[in-house]
């Protein structure tokens, strides 16, 4: 069972003012991640419905469950789609998808829709990886890197620290800001070594908050180094679980001297949203399904 690093709720959403039967192009995106899965439905490039739920042990089923939940009570079925794109870790296991596209490309395109065409840098920090993406005004990736080899800079690394200090993961951000002055960051990048370093600091009498502040700023600095490789340019946005940790976000903003954009929608759907937009572009290129059911 995958652990959950951030508290988030399973839910679905539909735009009740949009009559999908009047739409010409219906596309779907399904993002099957290691922890959560999302399905997005777009009608003529407008967001119509989405769902966000836990990934089960079986990727194909998780993908189908997510899509069915997004479509719940709308009267729409899989037969009404012009194109469906799968993305994320389990993207090749979406049996009803017409194509698989990487989460990097989908995040950029989804970020472009969600934050508007001025967004140039997207930082996505998940439970087990960290991505830095640069994109152009159309949401096309111009530079990216992904780090899923090392736990430093991921939700997993933060969880190791929360465990060590016996605090709940969602309290880490606030606690880390409850210090009189910013302590020097933990010097080890490696989570294993940082953990022994932190144990030493606690023994020296450091408070929980001070140790968390030292780790959050080390994490922010590490992310800053990752971003430097791709070269940050405004506007800047943060997605993924860590976007919910104010202790890390505020320190990244301070290092970059930039404020992250505030999203209009749940940032967790960025990948699936991008996938659905890719689907629409492919339909416009004449690559849509020929046997689509008439609404």
């Amino acid at each position: 069972m995958a652990k959950e690093f951030w508290r988030w709720k399973e839910y679905n959403w539909q735009d009740e003012n949009l009559n999908w039967r009047d739409g010409k192009v219906i596309t779907g995106g399904v993002d099957v991640g290691s922890v959560s899965s999302q399905a997005v439905v777009m009608v003529d490039g407008e967001l119509f419905a989405f769902s966000n739920m836990r990934t089960g042990s079986d990727s194909p089923n998780s993908a189908l469950n997510a899509m069915n939940w997004a479509l719940e009570n709308t009267g729409m079925t899989l037969d009404h789609f012009d194109f469906i794109v799968g993305t994320g870790y389990g993207r090749v296991n979406v049996p009803f998808a017409d194509k698989a596209i990487t989460e990097i490309a989908c995040h950029a395109r989804g970020g472009n829709y969600m934050y508007g065409p001025t967004v140039r840098t997207i930082l996505d920090m998940g439970g087990q990886d960290c991505k830095a993406i640069l994109c152009d005004e159309r949401g096309k990736v111009t530079n990216f890197l992904m780090n899923d080899k090392c736990a430093a800079g991921t939700g997993r690394g933060m969880e190791v620290f929360a465990d060590l200090l016996g605090v709940s993961i969602e309290d880490v951000g606030d606690l880390s800001l409850d210090v009189d002055e910013e302590p020097p960051p933990v010097s080890s990048t490696c989570v294993v070594f940082a953990k022994s370093e932190a144990a030493g600091l606690l023994r020296e009498g450091w408070s929980q908050s001070r140790v968390l502040a030292a780790y959050c700023s080390a994490m922010a600095h590490r992310v800053f180094t990752l971003l430097e490789r791709v070269g940050v340019s405004p506007d800047f946005a943060i997605t993924g679980g860590i976007a919910k940790n104010i202790g890390v976000v505020s320190r990244i903003e301070r290092e970059l001297n930039l404020t992250a954009l505030k999203p209009k929608h749940d940032t967790q759907i960025a990948g699936a949203l991008g996938a659905a937009l890719f689907g629409k572009a492919l339909v416009e290129k004449g690559k849509g399904r020929k046997n689509k059911a008439v609404a």
């Binding site: 430093a152 990048t189 180094t225």
Partner: peptide, 10 residues
């Protein structure tokens, strides 16, 4: 596009 494959560790 510049595609960076690999990682940063300690």
């Amino acid at each position: 596009m510049k595609a960076n494959y690999g990682y940063m560790d300690g």
